[in-house]
Each structure stands twice: as C-alpha cells, then as structure tokens.
Design a protein around this nucleic acid. Structure first.
Length: 287
DNA sequence: AATGAGCGC
C-alpha cells in the first residue's frame, strides 16, 4: 500500500498500524476447565511489527450447578408481589413488569426543587405573562433575555482600577444612573417621554464617535471602556451588513455631556487593542 | 479612512 508519508502525522500512522489487526488470528478462549482455569490466546504485533502470541491464564471462580440451583430455589420460595401475585404459582419464572415505578432523582442537599423543564425555547414556550417575570439581573431589562444571555454579562462588575471616574459615580449622585452608574432605565433615557419642561426629542447630542477600533472590538468592549466616565445610554459598533465584520468605528452616547467630554479628553489617543483610538464628538445623525 | 438600525404611524 503506497502511503504519502508527507501527509500523515504520527498519530495517524499509529491508527494505520492498528488497522492491520484484522490480519491477526482471532482471539481464542479455552475453558474454564473443571479447575476453573481459563486461557485466552490472542495475537498482536509487537513494536517491531512482528506477530506475537500472548497467552493469559486466569483462574475463575467455580460456580457449581448445585450452588446456582440452591439460590434459584431459594428465590422461588419468595412470596410473589406486584402483578406476579396474581399469577399461578410457578406459571412463569420471569415476567415483564408493566407497573409504573417512580424514581426519585437524588439532589444535592439544600438544592431547591427542580423547575419544570419545557421543551424547546423557554422564551418562546412562555406566554407574555411569563415573560414579564423574566428580568435580567445584570442590565435589568425585562422580558428580553435571561441573565446568562445578557450582552453585558461579562461587564457586570465595575473595573475599579481603570482610569478616572465621574464625581459621585459610586452612588446616587450621578444624575440618571442607578447604583452602579451605568444602566439607565428606559424612562430615564435621553429621548424618553418626560413630564413638564423636558424635551421629548431624541438626544443624540452627547454622542461620541470612536474610530480606529480593532476589528474584534465589539459593543460590550466599548461599554466597558466608556462606562467608567458615567452613565451610557447606547453603544454601537458599525458592522458590515454583508460580512458581519466590524467597520472599525462606533458610537457611545452619554447621559451627561460632561461625562462625554471627559471620555473624549481621556480616551482620544488611548492605546486600545494595539491601536490608537480616536475619540471625538459625533455629528448628529440626520433623521 | 471612517458618521450608526429599524420600528411604527
């Protein structure tokens, strides 16, 4: 058999050698004899490719006929139970049970009762009433995704070491932020309907354009980078609709203009993912 | 080098 050695790796060569086992005589089992001695004779190739015979001799426990029948007889004297209780004695030695037997699944101590599993997509299987109960513990969004599927799940903890922080970012001082200073509920977002004097127009004014992003920088990365300056309402990375590849720029919208300004001052020229970011005010999108 | 999506009226 001609083999192109250049295309084979050693692991494949090994497999190839094993394939030759069909050339060996079949395994032979002799016994066990009256003394319980069993011999297994098998053949294999040694490291040099020579056929060798290997004989293994073992002594098996003798199960005498008397011993077996004694135990079987003992079982026959057991009182019948279940469906078998209605059978004539000795009519059948074995039978298939049609009884329903509920098995308890062992659980870790202290674990909660199992939730009923729904086949298929749990979100789709759930009615609207159920969806309301679904609240992402990371970003707080309702009825959209589970915590485990949150796009920001990796960013749940604030990076304390990173650059500077807006004054009062830790607490409620930040005007529109929640405790963590990042998630802004819809009712508080720019452009949301507000009572009284505030404008209803969508607010794109605190929009920052970020260019020279590496191809694999995505929205959660941008959020992680910019959230330290204050509450962010939106991150967006422009993506080629055809290929899905990042176009290398994006936008970050801030609740507060001062936060956006500080982000620009701090991050413009900042080295990120081996590239030097450009961060500047975005010209508002025509609408 | 570069300024974003899609929804509904």
């Amino acid at each position: 058999m001609a083999v192109d050695m250049g295309k084979l790796r050693w692991g494949e060569l090994e497999d190839d050698a094993e394939d030759l086992d069909f050339l060996l005589p079949p395994r032979v089992v002799v016994g066990p004899d009256e003394n319980g001695v069993k011999k297994v004779i098998e053949f294999r190739f040694d490291d040099g490719g020579n056929k060798v015979r290997v004989t293994t001799t073992t002594r098996v426990r003798k199960l005498t006929r008397a011993r077996l029948s004694k135990r079987a007889l003992e079982r026959r004297s057991w009182p019948k139970f279940g469906d078998a209780a209605h059978e004539d004695a000795g009519a059948r030695l074995t039978m298939v049970s049609t009884e329903e037997i509920l098995l308890e699944r062992p659980r870790a101590p202290g674990s909660k009762a199992e939730e009923p599993k729904v086949a298929g997509d749990p979100l789709a299987a759930m009615g609207k009433a159920g969806a309301v109960l679904m609240v992402c513990r990371t970003c707080g969004k309702k009825g959209d995704h589970w915590t485990s599927k949150c796009p920001y799940k990796d960013l749940a903890t604030q990076t304390d070491s990173f650059v500077d922080k807006p004054p009062g970012a830790e607490g409620a001082a930040s005007s529109a932020g929640t405790g963590k200073g990042t998630y802004v509920p819809p009712s508080m977002r720019a452009g949301a309907e507000r009572s009284g004097t505030e404008m209803r127009r969508r607010n794109d004014e605190n929009s920052v354009r970020v260019t020279n992003l590496s191809e694999d920088t995505r929205e959660p990365d941008l959020l992680e980078l910019f959230r330290t300056f204050g509450p962010v309402t939106r991150v967006y990375v422009a993506v080629d609709q055809k290929t899905g590849v990042s176009r290398g720029f994006g936008f970050v919208n801030f609740v507060n203009r001062e936060d956006a300004e500080r982000a620009i001052n701090k991050l413009n020229g900042y080295g990120y993912d081996n590239l030097i970011l450009r961060v500047e005010w975005a010209t508002p999108r025509p609408n």
